[in-house]
């Protein structure tokens, strides 16, 4: 397993956000985490990236413990995180935003190659490379956030609600992009409220409810599961 989460607990002051969650992410494909608001999806990703300290459990990447490391150290190991709400840098240009993603890389030629690749992926970013990030639409900002994460040449990509607030057409576009990234050999952990899209894309899925894994299994199986259909797929 590339990434292993073992029995982790995260607390915010008095409330327990994650109560003993375990998940594994293989070295290829898409794993999705679905669930309602406040179920702990975002917290799971934040814990992996070192933004939330664990009160119990451990996280392993490549068989080495990464819990307790600073976020920048976790990025250095190869985990890129596209946070909820995109969080692009509004007063940096598109190109500057992309370069921040490559902050830890020192091989200029390789960074330039990644930039070309991201621009191939997202022609719209290439057209707007000199614009301020804040002047872009929600969908474009999502592409920028994903492009920025790819600039770190990640070994695994964590995506938090990439479809949030986007039009149906743009959601389809993002789905295509996520599949494409995975197809190029970068494993993806996809957190989504849009369970329909997530279960279509992923090979394996976890369902989080009130901070614990309620169900897990191959995405195709969960799509047929009565509880999942009722609670997350609208029938």
């Amino acid at each position: 397993m590339l990434l292993e989460i073992r029995d982790i607990e995260v607390r915010y002051q008095k409330t327990v956000a994650l109560r003993g969650v375990s998940m594994t992410v293989p070295a290829g494909g898409i794993v999705t985490i679905i669930g309602a608001n406040g179920a702990g999806k975002t917290t799971s990703l934040r814990a992996i990236s070192g933004l939330e300290p664990l009160t119990r459990g451990e996280i392993r990447f490549d068989d080495a413990r990464i819990d307790g490391l600073a976020p920048e150290e976790i990025v250095r190991r190869g985990i890129a995180h596209v946070p909820e709400g995109r969080r692009v840098f509004p007063d940096l240009t598109v190109e500057e935003n992309l370069h921040t993603g490559a902050f830890l890389r020192t091989d200029r030629a390789a960074v330039q190659a990644s930039l070309t690749e991201v621009f191939d992926h997202f022609p719209r970013l290439a057209e707007r490379r000199r614009q301020w990030a804040r002047s872009m639409s929600g969908g474009e900002q999502q592409m920028l956030a994903i492009g920025r994460a790819l600039m770190s040449a990640p070994r695994v990509l964590l995506l938090d609600e990439p479809s949030m607030g986007l039009s149906p057409v743009m959601v389809q576009e993002i789905a295509r992009i996520v599949a494409d990234i995975s197809g190029r050999g970068v494993p993806v952990v996809l957190v989504e409220q849009n369970a329909e899209m997530a279960l279509r894309l992923a090979q394996y899925a976890y369902v989080l409810e009130t901070g614990a894994v309620a169900l897990e299994g191959p995405a195709a199986d969960l799509r047929e599961n009565a509880h999942v259909r009722r609670a997350y797929l609208g029938g």
Binding site: V75, A80, P83, F89, T100, F103
Partner: peptide, 23 residues
Amino acid sequence: SKFGRALRACAQDAEAASLQGIS
């Protein structure tokens, strides 16, 4: 410069900056 850009990124969103590997 790369570090100047990191400073600006940090001023705009420190947490997002740390997710780019900026200390």
